[in-house]
Design a protein around this nucleic acid. Structure first.
Lengths: 284, 284
DNA sequence: GTAAGTTACGAGCGACGTAAAAATG
DNA sequence: CATTTTTACGTCGCTCGTAACTTAC
């Protein structure tokens, strides 16, 4: 059986047209190539070159061998590429979440406990997550409702309650709880891409008081506004990011401001992702 | 680039199911295989096996790699086979001849002067030889007429004159020449597969006096008959095989008993076969 | 003379085998 | 305890590079 290194040298020679040029390409000495080509003929048991004593060219056998050699080399390359790709695919988990916080937690937990895995993630408003899971667009989803489907394994994941973060001089800053209704007069900064929270907040607050923050907006002006502005945080995000001592956080009393998340994967993939889900549920 | 020997060992392992069995198949030690499989994983940069500490099995990556490895190995095998076949094809000359004698001479000359060539040959009655040459069914043809075609190179090859070989007690044994007409009363043995001679002889001799000798007939009875029987030889075959001292050879005077042969190849293949034709023409 | 390929010789890497250890059922 | 794989170590072969030789234009 003819080894790959011989075919590589052979193809390089054929493409460069001379042993010298090929040897430069391959970072090899000319004599090494000369010997390899002789060895190749030996292994085929057939002459592959016309030797005019000063120039080496392929003969008919050589040209036929060249076609095969190219095919074999490209198949060899394709093999390594595809296997690496396959490996990566099998170590990538795509997560769909209806909200940023539980996603951030889950990603953090996976990266800590399963560092060999790669995580892809998307935040959507939550309607299409179950379908995405079934179509294997996602391997794990985080939803606000428990999916009603026998082919899906679900865990109660965590609860999140909304607080409103106010400047200390805000009229509501002294309260121990507020309602969405009481915030209708206040301009509120709402980040982009917060999943189902967009829907909830938009249903309770007047559009004209909402300032949407695009990801590209994170500039000096925004930081300035954020100091003077009102926005939402949650009990969970306080744990994660700490509190801002310049500001006051007041819990919201509405039911809609208290959410429970569920985390799910396909039953058929429980062996792969069940451990991840359980681990992330178990840590604080 | 992953070398063939690794893929061979990998496929052997996959097919035998264990390193031990594969090592026996490959006439290799187990540790060598164990190391090779590790090296293979190294070169892919990816795990290919599930290691249960006591049993080695392919994982998903391994199965994908296996498919490619099999393809590459079979392509490699196909390559050597096809190149060797191609080489052989390019060293094989197919000869079509209208008669046995010039063919025998040509084959002998080629085998002597060009021992690396393989010769295929066919004897036909001569009608389809030119077509066969154009269709590359033959590379060299021997005909009785000179082909009238610009794409064909032709040489006068040799002449052959028929003699009749008679038992010494035959009525015509004392003559210095005879005609076909005079042989009409004599039973004559004619070998099978003598090309255009069949047509010539059948046109001059009565069917009921002809005994056809099939190749399978070469038995004691035939040898006995041949001693008592009459048959044709030629000046050329006398030179080649010598004379039988128990018999008398008398030349035939008819024009049809004197033949000149032409030897031809395609003009486009003159460089390949011109030398062979010239060489055979030049030797006695 | 220059540009190409081949031959000769020595060096180092790596694939192999033997022997022994580790792990699993 | 048997079977299988892994680890350790020494050996041999094979591929490589350097240098000298050969051949054509």
């Amino acid at each position: 059986m003819i080894e790959i290194y011989l075919l590589e040298q052979f193809v390089a020679f054929a493409e460069k047209g001379s042993l010298l040029k090929a040897s430069l390409e391959l970072h090899l000495s000319q004599p090494a190539l000369s010997r390899s080509m002789k060895k190749l003929e030996d292994e085929f048991g057939v002459l592959l070159f016309d030797r005019n004593r000063s120039k080496l060219t392929l003969n008919k056998n050589g040209e036929l061998a060249l076609e095969y050699a190219k095919k074999i080399l490209s198949l060899n390359r394709e093999m390594t590429e595809e296997v690496v790709l396959n490996d990566r695919k099998n170590r990538t988990v795509s997560i769909g979440s209806c909200a940023p916080l539980p996603l951030r937690k889950l990603i953090g937990d996976i990266q800590k406990q399963y560092p060999e895995w790669t995580v892809d993630s998307v935040i959507t408003d939550g309607c299409d997550l179950v379908d995405g899971l079934k179509e294997k667009k996602y391997q794990i989803i985080i939803t606000q409702k428990m999916p009603e489907d026998r082919s899906i394994i679900t865990l109660r994941y965590l609860k999140e309650s909304l607080l409103v973060s106010l400047p200390k001089d805000h009229p509501l800053a002294g309260r121990d709880k507020v309602s969405f209704e009481e915030l209708r007069e206040t301009e509120i900064l709402i980040p982009d891409n917060i999943g189902m929270w967009s829907r909830i907040l938009e249903s309770h607050l007047p559009k004209e008081k909402i300032i949407f923050q695009k990801p590209t907006d994170l500039s000096i002006e925004i930081l300035y506004i954020m100091n003077r502005c009102t926005y939402f945080i949650s009990d969970r995000s306080v744990k994660l990011l700490g509190v801002d001592s310049n500001r006051i956080a007041v819990p919201l009393e509405d039911e809609d401001a208290k959410v429970e998340y569920y985390i799910s994967c396909l039953a058929s993939q429980k062996s792969k992702f069940g451990d991840m889900m359980n681990y992330s549920k178990s840590v604080i």
